[in-house]
Structures are given as structure tokens and as C-alpha cells.
Design a binder for these strands. Structure first.
Lengths: 214, 214
DNA sequence: CTGAGGTAACTTACTCCAAGGTCATATCTC
DNA sequence: GAGATATGACCTTGGAGTAAGTTACCTCAG
């Protein structure tokens, strides 16, 4: 063959696209949009750069496809949990549990969702807005229930606590990725203990109880 | 004058460096290392690109100087608070209060500290390690006290809670930057309420008390 | 059955550009 | 003149994006 395997009619477009998107998810989610190179992703997927451009149009187009793939996976899982009837911190803990399990085989999807180096205009921004809305809606809802539970009705408090909650989820997942020997189940148990610890520490001394640290 | 103000012996090196570093802090802290352009920073500082290279050697050198400037400011403030005798969440809240006040005139310093697009090797990595150690040490210490308070002695729990705490601080500061009309004092009060809310929500119902949502 | 043309899959070898970095030189003070 | 401050114009490079050509499968007329 004069040229590698040029012209191999081989793989149907849909299959190839999925294969490229999966490779792209891992690269974008690991090094971020800005540092990722299209040529590198093509190499990872085992094909050449122009094929990527033929199928996705641009680096941004490729990112968009990858983002949608990953965001849909995660948003769907969070909505599944939200459909349960748990409230307050219990609901938060179940969401975390679901995320740990979903992310186990493809942890980089999480970083893909919040990539700060991704373009902040055009179609990517629109897609991010869609998924951010979907996900934030769930967080806002959960935090709202919690605030009602404790009698705080300041909307800015709710907004700030939503930010803190989402950030805490991020921190826990990131911490987990740095401790790969920990299983999803152990992580969920850990989250339960941490909540208990925070709660215990905030209590006036005369109300302190052992909320279980084992 | 044939060339703008070339050769103007004008500003002494030390002054010029500070001026450039301050401009660089704002740019690096706002758009991040990767997206920042040296020419742009030079323009912001009112001087030309080669002067930046003459004084700082490279984009990385300029970032290093900016990072040290910003990180020192913040680490010093956190250590100041840590020297007080508060413990547990009270200490956390005082740290937040100190950060809000320090960041009020130059909010971008915060993002500078945790810029994900900064180089992760060489002198920058070394400097980041130094300051990350200094700051993390304080968080670890504070979280350790808190865990002792509630009787959880799992070191991984402490490690994870430290990550969550630092992330929560980040979230609160970021939220604040998006709500510029809120004063540092109001933010500190808000943080008190949020802690109370979390604590209340985690309690078994029979122990629930009004921890004050106003 | 067969082979010519149509089309999808695929690659090599470019162009182009933004941004990092350098060089030679000019002007000021002492 | 020596040395510090300063700049316009240049060089260089990595990576996005493109042009043009190559190979393989499919279909359908004869």
C-alpha cells in the first residue's frame, strides 16, 4: 500500500464518530479544551486529523459533540436520583452516590462538564447553558428544600449555598479521582460521615451528640 | 520624538517591575495564564513587550512573579487568622472574613492562586507547591481540630474534608465576585447562616433547633 | 457476470496565523 | 562614553484548518 490505509472504506461514519468522540472526551476531560490538540485526539482515535474536520468541522465542533455526550450521561443520572423522594442532605448524598458509580468507568467526563478553557461563546456556550441549567435546577431544587426545612428564606443564601454544594460535589469527586483505590460505596459512606462531622461541629456544645463517625 | 518615548530613562526598574506585576496579576487572575498574552499585559501596563522580557525573561517568569505577589498576600492573611485561638467552624468563618476583606480591592488574586492553565512544571510548580503547602497546612490543621472535636479520626476523612473545605471557600469567594454589591461583612454573616442551615438539616428531627436564619 | 462510474472513507502535504521570544538601536542620566 | 531604560521590527513555532488526491465498496447497464 502506498499510503498507510488510505481509502479503507472500513468503518461507517456513525461508528467512527462515536470512536472519535470517546477519544476526545478523555483528552478534553483530562487536559482541557485549550491544551488539547486535534491532531493528538486523531492519533489517539487511530485516524488522521482531516477526518476529524470532515466529521466535526472544527475543534469547537468536536468539543461540542464530546460535551453533549458527557453532559447527557451525567445530567441523566442526576435527574434519575432527583426523581426519588429523598429530601435535604439525604438527597444530596444519593446524588453523590449516583455520580460516583456513573463516573467510575469514565472519570474524565466530570472535568469535561466544567472545563474553564472551553470557548465561552457560540454553540458551545449554548450547549453548556442548556446542561448547566438542567443540573443547576436540580441543585437549586434540593437546596431550596433544605432551606425550607431549616427556615432560611433568603434567596441569596440559597443561591450561595447552591454554589457551595456544587463545588463540594466537585471537590469530593476530584478527591476521589486522586484516591482510585476507594470504591464508590466507601466514598458514599465517607460523605455520610463528613456531613455528620460538620453538623456536630456546628452544634452548641450542650446539644452535641455522637452522630456516628464509623 | 521619532520613537514614542524610547530611551526615556524615566521609571526605575523596581517601580516598573511592580507596575508590570500588578497589571499581570489582574490579567492572569482574570483570563488565566494560557489565555493571557504578554503583549496585552505590556499594553495594559503602558509599556512595550520587550521590556517585559528584559525584566522577567519569559511569560512564565512574569507569571511566577505575579503568583508570588498574590500568593504571599493571601497566605499571610490566612496565617494571621490562624494565629488567633478560634477552633472548628468558627476559625473557618474568621478565615473567610479575612479573605473577603483582603480580596475586596483586588479580587483577581484569588483566581491567580488556583489557575489551572498555569504551567505545571519548573519554577512555577515549585512556587505553587510552596504556597499550596502553606495554605493547605492551615486547612489541614483547622479540619484536624474539627475532626477531633467530633471524634472522627479517619485520616482519609480528614483529607477529603480538607478538600471540601478549600473548595467551599473557593465557591463562596467566586459567588461573592459575582455579587459585587454584597459587602465583606454581609458575606461573613451569610456564611454563618449557611453553616447553621447545613447543621440544622443534618440533625435528626427530634434535636432540631432554630439556629438563627436572620 | 462484469466493469465503469458514483460516492464515502481516508490521508499526505500543505497554508496561515497568533503569540512567544529576540535583535538592533535610540535616548536619557551621570 | 558607560550603562540603564526603552522600543519597532523582526524571527520562530505550534497548532488550527484546507486542498487535493487515493482507495474501497456499491450499483446498475449491458
Amino acid at each position: 500500500m502506498s499510503r498507510a490505509n488510505a481509502g479503507t472504506k472500513g468503518v461507517p461514519r456513525a461508528d467512527r464518530e462515536l470512536q472519535i468522540v470517546r477519544a476526545a472526551c478523555e483528552v478534553f476531560g483530562t487536559v482541557g479544551f485549550a491544551k488539547a490538540s486535534v491532531a493528538g485526539i486523531a492519533a489517539d482515535a487511530g485516524i488522521s486529523k482531516p477526518l476529524v474536520y470532515q466529521y466535526f468541522g472544527s475543534k469547537e465542533g468536536l468539543f461540542l459533540a464530546s460535551f453533549n455526550y458527557g453532559a447527557e450521561t451525567l445530567a441523566a443520572e442526576m435527574e434519575r436520583v432527583a426523581a426519588d423522594d429523598s429530601v435535604g442532605l439525604e438527597r444530596g448524598l444519593r446524588t453523590l452516590d449516583g455520580l460516583f458509580r456513573t463516573l467510575e468507568p469514565q472519570p474524565w467526563l466530570w472535568r469535561l462538564l466544567f472545563d474553564p478553557s472551553a470557548p465561552d461563546d457560540g454553540e458551545v456556550a449554548a450547549a453548556r447553558a442548556v446542561y448547566t441549567d438542567r443540573i443547576t435546577r436540580l441543585a437549586v431544587e434540593g437546596v431550596g428544600e433544605l432551606m425550607r426545612l431549616v427556615g432560611d428564606d433568603d434567596p441569596l443564601d440559597a443561591s450561595a449555598l447552591t454554589a457551595v454544594w456544587m463545588s463540594a460535589v466537585d471537590a469530593l469527586i476530584t478527591w476521589w479521582l486522586d484516591h482510585p483505590e476507594v470504591t464508590p460505596t466507601q466514598m458514599t459512606e465517607r460523605c455520610h460521615r463528613l456531613i455528620a462531622a460538620l453538623s456536630g461541629a456546628a452544634l452548641p456544645a450542650h446539644l452535641m451528640v455522637d452522630l456516628g463517625a464509623g
